[in-house]
């Protein structure tokens, strides 16, 4: 038997009631790299992403079959501690969703919940997380202010910093830049390239150029199936399937 990759799905299917949104997908996410999930709206890429940290559990009527492997543990097993697992898999959404708290509290909240009470240690985590999210210099003098006073792009980087604060091994990004202006988008993309050095990153995007710029691997989804999965260069220059090429070209045109 081939050992599954440290982080991978095996024959994963997701159902919403009778509807099968994801059809038997097996794919791996290599370490220290970015995997982009692309495909037309409704192709299931977001559902797939959300299933990786079992956020789909929150949707009434959803269920899954197959496996998600992380370091030899099956995340879909019924005994899995979902709360613990989510600590190891960070997630950032399309619309920035900082907590209605101060900038500092947004970052310190998670670590404190996991038992870090020491003020100095918390200060350190806040600074490191904000630095990793390339936000520290912009907010270091206003940590006590409300996170909602930040601009959209800053809020999004704050959300990334918040996800980093609990030291995840995997970062799931659901169209993290699609609600942002070009400058903020550029910053987020730089950040992704920087962060992948110590993280596995999975990103859903509608922006083909973005997928080409930031990702090492690209997976093309269509109607709940994984049509093609490979190195980004190859997918974008010489895809095996016609349908992949049409989607990518259509977006360029």
């Amino acid at each position: 038997m081939v050992m599954p990759m440290p982080f991978s799905t095996e024959d994963l299917s997701i159902y919403y009631g009778e509807f099968q949104a994801i059809k038997n997908i097996s794919m791996g996410f290599p370490a220290a790299s970015v995997t982009a999930l692309i495909g037309p709206s409704g192709c299931g890429k977001s559902t797939f992403l959300r299933s990786l940290n079992r956020m789909n559990d929150e949707i009434a009527g959803s269920r899954s079959t197959g496996h998600i492997w992380m370091d030899g543990i099956d995340l879909t097993a019924s005994g899995t501690d979902v709360i613990k697992l989510r600590q190891r898999i960070g997630m950032v959404w399309q619309r920035p969703n900082p907590f209605y708290k101060s900038i500092y509290e947004n970052i310190a909240f998670g670590p404190r919940y996991y038992g870090i009470k020491n003020r100095k240690q918390l200060d350190e985590i806040v600074e490191t997380s904000l630095r990793r999210a390339a936000l520290w210099d912009e907010v270091k003098d206003r940590l006590k202010e409300s996170a909602l006073a930040l601009s959209g792009g800053q809020q999004q980087r704050l959300c990334i910093a918040r996800a980093l604060s609990v030291n995840p091994q995997i970062l799931l990004l659901d169209e993290p830049a699609s609600a942002l202006d070009p400058v903020s988008t550029g910053k987020i993309e730089e950040l992704i390239t920087e962060l992948k050095k110590d993280l596995r990153i999975v990103i859903v995007t509608h922006n083909m150029q973005q997928a080409a710029r930031v990702s090492d691997y690209t997976a093309y989804f269509y109607l709940g199936t994984l049509v093609e999965h490979g190195e980004t260069d190859q997918i974008f220059t010489n895809p095996e399937k016609n349908s992949t090429q049409e989607y990518i070209m259509g977006r360029f045109g």
């Binding site: 956020m55 709360i83 989510r86 600590q87 898999i89 619309r95 907590f99 909240f109 919940y113 918040r162």
Partner: peptide, 23 residues
Amino acid sequence: EQKEAGLALGLSKWKIITSIMLP
């Protein structure tokens, strides 16, 4: 989105209700 952010951070439901949603 507030609830989702809490869930993704690995917070328990009770913690999300009392510390994220209540304020």
